[in-house]
């Protein structure tokens, strides 16, 4: 069991660190790279939770597609120059941080103190549930409607992205 613990805590360390670095990094590119690291760690968490399929898809979609898109846009707009985006620390920053801390404390209170959840073990079915086969079955039967819906969602997004980002205003 120790191995599981070690993996868990080291993932937490890396994921937490990278998340914080996303926020504090000066350059958007650094932030993006740290976010990719963070996403990989999350994939690790999914594996520890026996969600193999989701873990793989997560890495492919997020780190592979979405983050590349981010990097691409950052490069396209040539935002690497940090001096363009000097960000000051002022009183608003402190308020923001303290509000966020308050939010976390509230979550902590609710999760750890108010709600004693007895479950400490992964469900016995969890390994089976996370497989491609099982998820595929559920997705194409029970969740067929939302699944089809996402296709419309993606079409709308594609159309929108094209008309907003295309260079010429009239063709």
């Amino acid at each position: 069991m120790a191995l599981e613990q070690i993996i868990f805590w080291s993932l937490i360390l890396v994921a937490g660190f990278s998340a914080i670095m996303v926020v504090v990094s000066r350059s958007p590119i650094t932030s993006a790279l740290y976010l990719i690291l963070n996403l990989f760690c999350l994939g690790g968490f999914y594996l520890t939770l026996n969600a193999q399929f989701i873990a793989i898809v997560h890495i492919i979609v997020y780190a592979g597609a979405i983050m590349v898109l981010f990097l691409f846009v950052i490069m396209l707009l040539n935002l690497g120059d940090e001096s363009k985006l000097r960000e000051r620390i002022d009183w608003k920053t402190y308020i923001s941080i303290s509000i966020s801390v308050a939010f976390f404390v509230e979550l902590y209170y609710i999760l750890m103190i108010q709600t004693p959840i007895p479950v400490t073990k992964l469900h016995v079915n969890s390994a089976e549930v996370g497989t491609v086969e099982y998820l595929g079955k559920v997705l194409y039967t029970q969740f067929i409607f939302p699944f089809e819906l996402t296709s419309i969602l993606l079409i709308a997004a594609i159309i929108g992205a094209i008309i907003l980002a295309k260079k010429k205003f009239t063709i």
């Binding site: 939302p146 819906l149 996402t150 419309i152 969602l153 709308a156 997004a157 159309i159 929108g160 008309i163």
Partner: peptide
């Protein structure tokens, strides 16, 4: 479904 409907509407609105 409600979430996806909301997102579909919102994305169209953003655009």
């Amino acid at each position: 479904t409600i979430f996806l409907g909301l997102e579909l509407m919102s994305i169209c609105f953003y655009i």
